[in-house]
């Protein structure tokens, strides 16, 4: 049997000196290439779980493996994020002072690529999300949907096996949201990546290979 892409074993995480329990003995496995939806009310631990799976945080106890690598601490986290994970945030989190192309190049900067190679890769990705013509536009001049498409291109820059999306349509109208989700799924399938989606919107969970419902820091179903 294949090793799961993500394996979380009895992860615990608390905040405010143990007063707030964000994750309580959470264990899960996510297969490579699957689409996983995480839902739950606010404060249920969805984002904390996403942060831990995304190597942005480590659990107080328990273990997390991504693509066979133990997520521990320090520089390994940076390296795992750079190589294995692509993020799409709710607020897109693009760098406002840069162009669409420059934003897509940002995750590639730590890699040993020439500026020419980075540029070519960024333009190719912008082409994939149908934004090549706006490549040299400042992201401030793009619409919300266009910005999120740039964010998807940026998430794919290093061809990560794992895509994490935290409420990617939260700030978009439903039609644009559907377009963005369609694009996200299209790109995920194209590159064969695993998509973990955190959302309040049950509609977006349709077709998920795995649906994780969080409640009070635990997986309820």
């Amino acid at each position: 049997m294949n090793e799961p892409l993500v394996r979380v074993k009895k992860a615990n995480k608390t905040f405010e000196e143990g007063q707030v329990v964000a994750l309580d003995e959470v264990s899960l496995e996510i297969e490579a290439g699957s689409f996983v939806a995480i839902t739950g009310p606010s404060g249920s631990g969805k984002t904390t779980l996403l942060n831990i799976v995304g190597a942005m945080d480590v659990p107080d106890s328990g273990e997390v493996f991504i693509d066979g690598e133990l997520v521990a601490s320090g520089r390994e986290l940076d390296s795992i994020r750079a190589r294995k994970i692509g993020f799409v945030f709710q607020m897109h989190n693009l760098i406002p002072v840069l162009t669409a192309r420059q934003n897509v190049e940002i995750p590639m900067l730590p890699r040993p690529l020439t500026s020419k190679e980075r540029r070519a890769r960024a333009l190719q990705l912008l082409d994939e999300v149908k934004l090549k013509r706006r490549a040299e536009s400042s992201v401030l001049g793009l619409s919300g949907g266009e910005r999120q498409r740039v964010a998807i291109a940026r998430a794919l820059a290093n061809s990560p096996p794992l895509l994490l999306a935290d409420e990617p349509t939260g700030n978009l109208d439903s039609r644009t949201g559907d377009e963005v989700m369609g694009l996200l799924h299209e790109q995920r399938e194209r590159v064969g990546a695993t998509l973990i989606l955190v959302t309040h919107n049950e509609e977006l969970c349709r077709g998920a290979d795995q649906h994780i419902r969080m409640q009070d820091g635990k997986i309820s179903s």
């Binding site: 994020r81 993020f87 760098i95 940002i106 730590p110």
Partner: peptide
């Protein structure tokens, strides 16, 4: 702060 957090999330090291 958020922008720098984003860069870290995208794989930039603290040293970078």
């Amino acid at each position: 702060t958020r922008e720098l957090g984003t860069l870290r999330a995208l794989g930039w090291t603290g040293r970078r």
